[in-house]
Amino acid sequence: VLKRTYDDVDWMEEGGESSRNAAARGLALLEELWSRPEQHAAVVTHGNLLSLLIREYEPSFGYEEWTKLSNPDVYVLERQRPDAGLSTIRRIWTD
């Protein structure tokens, strides 16, 4: 079932949420954080939503990559040019 949510971002279980909707919810939070005056923020989430957010910045990130996430795992998202929306994401957790 989880693999299906990566293959079809609009599919959802009854009473659930699609990957597209979950990613939009997460991205809205990131936008809210970027509008704040603080220079840094920490966002803590579960692996599924983390993988959807990573996928927004690295489109090749999918189900297979999700299976390789460790628990815990840590990624850094840096906004390079807010005016252009350019960002980089990188894993900093070492197993």
Rank of each mutant, 00 (worst) to 15 (best):
V1F: 04
K3I: 08
K3W: 07
T5N: 00
T5Q: 03
Y6C: 05
D7R: 02
D7S: 03
D7Y: 04
D8R: 06
D8S: 10
V9T: 05
V9A: 01
V9G: 03
V9K: 02
M12Y: 05
M12R: 11
E13A: 14
E13S: 10
E13C: 07
E14S: 12
G15H: 12
E17M: 10
E17K: 09
E17N: 11
E17I: 10
S18D: 04
S18R: 02
S19W: 00
S19N: 01
S19Q: 02
S19V: 01
S19T: 04
R20V: 01
R20D: 00
N21D: 11
A22Q: 09
A23R: 15
A24D: 05
A24T: 05
A24H: 03
R25T: 07
L27H: 11
L27G: 12
A28Y: 06
L29T: 05
L29I: 09
L29R: 06
L30Y: 09
L30P: 08
L30W: 08
L30M: 15
L30E: 11
E31D: 15
E32H: 10
W34S: 09
W34T: 08
S35V: 06
S35D: 14
R36K: 12
R36I: 00
R36L: 11
P37E: 13
P37R: 10
P37T: 05
E38V: 13
E38Q: 14
Q39R: 08
Q39Y: 00
Q39D: 08
H40N: 13
H40T: 15
A42L: 14
A42K: 02
V43S: 07
V44A: 13
T45D: 06
T45H: 07
H46A: 13
H46W: 07
H46V: 15
H46M: 13
G47D: 08
L49S: 04
L50M: 14
L50I: 06
L50H: 03
S51G: 07
L52Y: 01
L52E: 05
L52C: 06
L53C: 15
L53P: 12
I54Q: 01
I54H: 01
I54G: 01
E58Q: 13
E58T: 10
P59I: 00
P59E: 00
F61R: 05
F61G: 01
G62C: 02
G62W: 00
G62K: 00
E64P: 00
E65W: 01
W66A: 03
W66I: 08
T67S: 01
K68L: 14
K68I: 04
K68A: 11
K68D: 09
L69P: 01
S70R: 13
N71G: 06
N71T: 14
P72W: 03
D73V: 04
V74G: 03
V74R: 11
Y75T: 07
V76M: 12
V76I: 15
E78H: 12
E78K: 10
R79D: 09
Q80A: 08
Q80T: 09
R81N: 12
R81D: 13
R81Q: 09
P82M: 10
P82R: 14
D83A: 15
D83C: 10
D83M: 15
A84D: 08
G85C: 06
S87H: 15
S87P: 06
S87E: 15
S87M: 13
T88F: 12
I89G: 08
R90D: 10
R90M: 11
R90F: 15
R91A: 12
R91E: 14
R91S: 14
I92K: 04
I92R: 05
T94M: 12
D95N: 13
